[in-house]
C-alpha cells in the first residue's frame, strides 16, 4: 500500500468536473441567453420553460430508475399516448361525444377516475414489459422497442385514428391551471421528482436499484431481489408515463394517438445529459432534473434568438455526445 493510498484521497478534478458538468453548463446557458436576450430572464418565460419540460420531466424521472438498473425504456412515448387516450376516454365516459365542448364536456366521470385510469394503464404497460424482461429474459432494448410499436398501435386502434378533445375545466386545470402563479404540471413534476429523490437516495428499494445496476450477479448473491427491483423500475416509468399522458391531454385539451412521438429520445437524452450512466448504477434525480431543464433552456433560448429548430436538434445531439464523453473520461480516470 503506498502512502498516497493511506492518506486522504487526492482530489479527482476530472470526476468533479464530470459531476458538475451539467449544472455548470446549465448555468452557462442561462447567463449566455440572459446576456444575449434580456427577455429570457422574464419570470413568465422562465415559468414557460418549466411548464414545457415538466411533462418530459415526469417521464425522465421514471426513466432514471430504469437506466440506473442498466436498462432502457423506448416505449414511453407510446405509453404517454395510450394512457392519455384512456384517461380522456374515462373522463368523457365514452367516445360518443369525443369532440364535445362547453356544457357537454363536463359530463362523464370525475377527473380523479381519469387520472387513475391513465396511471393504471401506464403501470400495466410497464408491468408487462418488466415481466418480459425479468421472466422471459428478453433484453430491455428489444422488449421496449416492441412496446414502442405495439402500444402506439394499440393507441391508434383505441382512438380510431382521431383525437378525443374538449374536457371539463377540472380536467383541463391539470394541464393549464396555476397555483400561486406556478403551472400545475410544474408542481406535479417537482413533487414527483422530490419523492423519487427520497426513494432513490434514502430507502432500501433505492439502494437495490443502484446495486442491481452496479453488479446484478453480486447483488443477487447478497440477497438483493434484483428481479423485483428491475420489474418495479419498469412499473414506475410506466406509471409516470401514464401520469404524463394525462397531463399532456389536459394541457392540450385533447388526447391523440400520435402524442409523445419520439418522446423517448428527448427523455433518454435528458437523463444521460444529467449524468446517469447508461451502464447502470450511477446517476441521480437531481442530475435528471438538471438535464431536463437544460434541454428546455436550450430550446427556449434558441427560439428567442430566432435560431431554427433544426439547429436545436443538432445542438442537443452534440451536447448529448459531449456529456457522455466527459463521463467516460471521468470513469477512465477513476479506474
Amino acid at each position: 500500500m503506498t502512502t498516497r493510498e493511506l492518506g486522504r484521497p487526492s482530489i479527482d478534478y476530472v470526476g468533479l468536473l464530470a459531476r458538475f458538468a451539467a449544472p455548470l453548463f446549465l448555468l452557462f446557458l442561462v447567463v449566455l441567453f440572459a446576456v444575449l436576450e434580456p427577455r429570457f430572464l422574464h419570470p413568465l418565460n422562465l415559468m414557460n420553460i418549466l411548464r414545457q419540460v415538466s411533462i418530459m420531466g415526469l417521464v425522465a424521472v421514471g426513466m432514471t430508475f430504469v437506466i440506473l438498473t442498466a436498462g432502457i425504456d423506448l416505449s414511453v412515448g407510446s405509453v404517454v399516448a395510450l394512457a392519455g387516450l384512456v384517461g380522456a376516454y374515462v373522463a368523457k365516459g365514452g367516445l360518443d361525444d369525443r369532440f364535445a365542448v362547453g356544457a357537454a364536456a363536463a359530463a362523464g366521470n370525475p377527473v380523479i377516475l381519469a387520472v387513475l385510469a391513465a396511471v393504471a394503464v401506464g403501470a400495466a404497460c410497464g408491468a408487462m414489459q418488466g415481466a418480459a424482461i425479468t421472466r422471459l429474459r428478453v433484453p430491455p432494448f428489444v422488449v421496449t422497442l416492441g412496446g414502442l410499436t405495439a402500444f402506439r398501435g394499440l393507441a391508434l386502434i383505441f382512438s380510431g385514428g382521431g383525437p378525443i378533445s374538449g374536457f371539463s375545466p377540472a380536467f383541463v386545470w391539470w394541464g393549464q391551471g396555476r397555483i400561486y402563479g406556478v403551472p400545475v404540471p410544474v408542481i406535479v413534476f417537482a413533487l414527483v421528482a422530490a419523492v423519487a429523490h427520497i426513494v432513490l437516495r434514502y430507502t432500501r428499494f433505492g439502494l437495490w436499484i443502484y446495486a442491481t445496476g452496479g453488479n446484478s450477479a453480486a447483488s443477487e448473491l447478497n440477497g438483493v431481489p434484483i428481479r423485483r427491483a428491475t420489474f418495479s423500475a419498469y412499473v414506475i416509468v410506466g406509471l409516470l408515463s401514464g401520469l404524463a399522458g394525462f397531463i399532456l391531454s389536459a394541457r392540450l385539451n385533447s388526447a391523440e394517438a400520435v402524442a409523445g412521438l419520439q418522446l423517448e429520445l428527448d427523455v433518454i437524452a435528458a437523463v444521460v445529459i444529467g449524468g446517469t450512466s447508461l451502464f447502470g448504477g450511477i446517476g441521480s434525480i437531481f442530475g435528471t432534473v438538471v438535464g431536463v431543464v437544460l434541454i428546455g433552456v436550450l430550446r427556449n433560448g434558441l427560439v428567442l434568438m430566432n435560431v431554427s429548430s433544426f439547429v436545436q436538434q443538432i445542438l442537443i445531439g452534440l451536447i448529448l455526445v459531449l456529456a457522455v464523453a466527459v463521463d467516460q473520461r471521468a470513469a477512465l480516470r477513476r479506474s
Binding site: Y210, A211, G214, N215, N222, V224, I282
Partner: peptide, 15 residues
C-alpha cells in the same frame, strides 16, 4: 460479489 458503485459500508450491508 461487490458493487463497485457503492461505498464499502453499503456493500457490507447489502441485502
Amino acid at each position: 460479489a461487490l458493487c463497485d458503485n457503492l461505498t464499502a459500508a453499503l456493500n457490507v450491508f447489502l441485502g
